[in-house]
Design a binder for these strands. Structure first.
Length: 655
RNA sequence: GCUGUUGUAGCUCAGGGGUAGAGCACUUCCUUGGUAAGGAAGAGGUCAUGGGUUCAAAUCCCAUCAACAGCUCCA
């Protein structure tokens, strides 16, 4: 009898079982239940994700991953990427391979099809078909450990230049291959046991991508795909993507007549239509109200500033070339720039008079329109534009007040997000890249102070954050709030930035209790981020069904039995004067019934003006979900709706 | 900016070397008290812009502009 070691395997619930050394994840799943054998995709071993077929030879804490776990899906999609590479290699042998990872939703592979060859959508179908054939072969994903020299030799002989470059960066002794069928790839793993798990495949797109993400490198062809263990899951996913398209703010924005673009006006310069302007107005009014409570003062500054202003702030040196061009005037040597940010103007406002420590904090707010030259390929609906309005404010405070002020800004952002029901957001602390401090202005000491203040304030507010190095603004670290759009792209909305540098560059000061001059600390903040991007995300989150206090169309007027109803027009005008948006629906009555019964869930109130109502000078009011409220005079209705909107806004404050 | 795709009526799109099509929407009229009503008539397009090839270009070629997807970038 062969001598075998026993090892201890610990499960997530803390229980421990003994197994023979060399046991695999698959064996462990089998020892638990048959169902698990079918569902398990990869295994966590002491925090690392492993193949299910890789032997475990030491005591370990394990966790079995299925489709419900990111680690499980990751292995699934990573294996799908290899499968795609195998298909491409068999169909187009000249192809050289870059990297092919799993991503949040699916996988991609960067490939170099060779000189003069490019893939088309038709190729995707062919590759997809070949993948399905290969998947059915049930080829095993085999893991092999290799030495660096051997790996280099192997890939050099195949002229896989990208792989060779990758291997050169790897340490000897850590290199592994994975082989399935005819395809061997340099890969860390983990992978599925075999290709038969992959039942449904959809190659979703074709794009260019720079090798290793560097725009100086060659551009490879990136093929995106997604795969599932069941055909039905693929169908559901395709349906979900279709639904997401319906929520696209560019589609809804056009349909609801909120905004538009014109080639004549220019790329990335949105034109707000009356209804969109109304929506934006209400958002601004709401924030103004909140800010007033928090002690902000509104200011207004011009859209251009002397070049000297941006030289003082450091923006010119940093971004001058990339920003909009300098505007020159007939006056010799006079140069202006379109303002790319509001901070320098606000610094000058602070400087316009001496300040005592007793005045601080000073909070200047402005819905400031700024212009930035974004690369043309970056522009996207309302989320990335060249002219946009920040809900900007700058707080000047003493170093002691900094943390408290920072926390108050977090509160405002919470009020906004709560008001609009944004539940799924992430908070990101962006610090400077410690290896590249040249990119930033200001002393190390100030940076450290600012970074510490942000981290502590976020912690004290109980905010879960992810910390990212190298993402800070060039003048200071920041806390950003990100939300996802309809198809899962991340966008930065609210931002709070601590700045020790501009006060220094502008020589801002206040007189302290000691009768000496001190330098204030500055906070930049924009809870919405920009009105444009915020409205875009708002549209996609609500699919155009805005809350009552924002909705551009609150009321449907529906005259019954009358083609033309002069009384209805009167009501419409009265409502407009009270800033209540209404549409007069004098189309065929049957369509009116349809609106009443099917669409009332989108429209909070409906007014019905029939013959009876005309006779006694009233309207018949229906409230969403409540049915008839009965007849009332128009002024009574205006009071009702005004109270409801106020109540909604108050409720937001007292959340 | 880079790679790829696209640009035809207000919207969604078909067509395609011989001077423009559908559905929805719109206008006028008729019919109809019932869950996206039906009928009749009508209006609306230098087929993104500029150049080239051709007897002839919306169609083929080139350039420009714009949009879309991705990459890079993002104060």
């Amino acid at each position: 009898m062969r001598y075998t070691n026993m090892i201890k395997i610990e499960f997530p619930d803390g229980s421990i079982r003994e197994y023979e050394s060399g046991i695999t994840g698959m064996d462990i799943a089998a020892s638990i239940s048959n169902r698990l054998v079918k569902e398990v995709l990869s295994i966590g071993v002491n925090g690392q994700t492993w193949d299910l077929t890789r032997p475990i030879t030491k005591d370990a804490a394990v966790r079995l991953y299925t489709w419900d776990d990111e680690e499980g899906r990751h292995a699934f999609w990573h294996s799908s990427a290899h499968l795609m590479a195998e298909a491409i290699q068999s169909l187009y042998p000249a192809t050289k391979f870059g990297i092919g990872p799993a991503i949040e939703n699916g996988f991609y592979y960067d490939v170099d099809p060779g000189e003069g060859i490019s893939f088309t959508d038709k190729d995707l179908e062919i590759i997809e078909k070949r993948m399905t054939e290969l998947a059915r072969q049930k080829n095993i994903y085999k893991r092999t450990e290799v030495g660096k020299a051997e790996a280099l030799k192997n890939f050099e002989s195949k002229n896989e230049v990208y792989k060779v470059e990758l291997i050169n960066d790897l340490e000897d002794g850590t290199i592994t291959y994975y082989t399935q069928g005819e395809f061997t790839d340099l890969c860390r793993g983990p992978h599925l046991p075999d290709t038969s798990y992959i039942k449904a495949i959809k190659l979703t797109g074709l794009a260019g991508a720079y090798w290793r993400g560097n725009e100086k490198n060659k551009m490879l062809t990136r093929i995106y795909g997604i795969s599932f263990p069941k055909q039905k899951m693929l169908e559901e996913w395709l349906k979900l993507m279709e639904e997401a398209k319906q929520r696209d703010h560019r589609k809804i924005g056009r349909e609801m007549e909120l905004f538009t673009f014109s080639q004549n006006v220019g790329q990335g310069l949105p034109l707000w239509l009356p209804k969109g302007a109304m929506l934006r107005d209400r958002l601004e009014a709401f924030l103004r109200k909140v800010q007033k409570k928090y002690g902000y003062e509104q200011v207004i500054t011009p859209h251009i500033g002397n070049v000297q202003l941006y030289k003082t702030s450091g923006h010119y040196q940093k971004y001058g070339k990339d920003s909009f061009q300098v505007i020159t005037t007939p006056q010799e040597g006079e140069e202006f720039m379109l303002k790319p940010m509001n901070c320098p103007h606000h610094c000058e406002i602070f400087k316009s008079k001496p300040h005592s420590y007793k005045d601080l904090p000073v909070r200047f707010a402005e819905f400031g329109t700024v212009y930035r030259y974004e690369q043309s390929g970056e522009l996207h609906g309302l989320t990335r534009v060249r002219g946009f309005t920040q809900d900007d404010a700058h707080i000047f405070c003493t170093p002691e007040q900094l943390k408290d002020e920072f926390k108050k800004v977090i509160d405002i952002i919470f009020i906004i997000f709560n008001a609009l029901n944004f539940k799924e957001f992430t908070a990101q602390v962006s610090l400077r890249d410690p290896n590249d401090t040249q990119k930033y202005i200001g002393s190390d000491e100030n940076w450290e102070k600012a970074e510490k203040a942000i981290i502590e304030a976020a912690e004290e507010k109980g905010l879960q954050t992810t910390v990212v190095l190298g993402e800070a603004a060039f003048y200071g670290p920041k806390l950003d709030f990100m939300v996802k759009d309809a198809i899962g792209r991340k966008w930065q909305l609210g931002t709070i930035q601590v700045d020790y540098n501009l006060p220094e560059r502008f020589e801002l000061e206040y007189t302290g209790a000691d009768n000496k001059k001190h330098r204030p600390v500055m906070i930049h903040r924009a809870p919405f981020g920009s009105m444009e991007r915020f409205v875009a995300v708002l549209i996609e989150h609500t699919a155009g069904k805005f809350p009552l206090w924002l909705t551009p169309e609150q009321v449907v007027l529906l005259p019954i039995s009358e083609k033309y109803n002069p009384y209805a027009e009167d009501i419409l005008n009265t409502l407009k004067q009270a800033d209540i948006r209404a549409i007069l629906d004098d189309r065929n009555e049957k369509i009116g019934r349809k609106i009443r019964d099917n669409e009332l869930n989108k429209i909070p109130y409906m007014l019905i003006v029939g013959e009876n109502e005309m006779e006694n000078n009233s309207v018949s009011v229906r409230r969403q979900g409540e049915g008839d409220k009965g007849g009332m005079k128009v002024n009574e209705f205006i009071n009702l709706i005004t109270q409801e909107v106020e109540a909604q806004i108050d409720a937001i404050h007292n959340y």
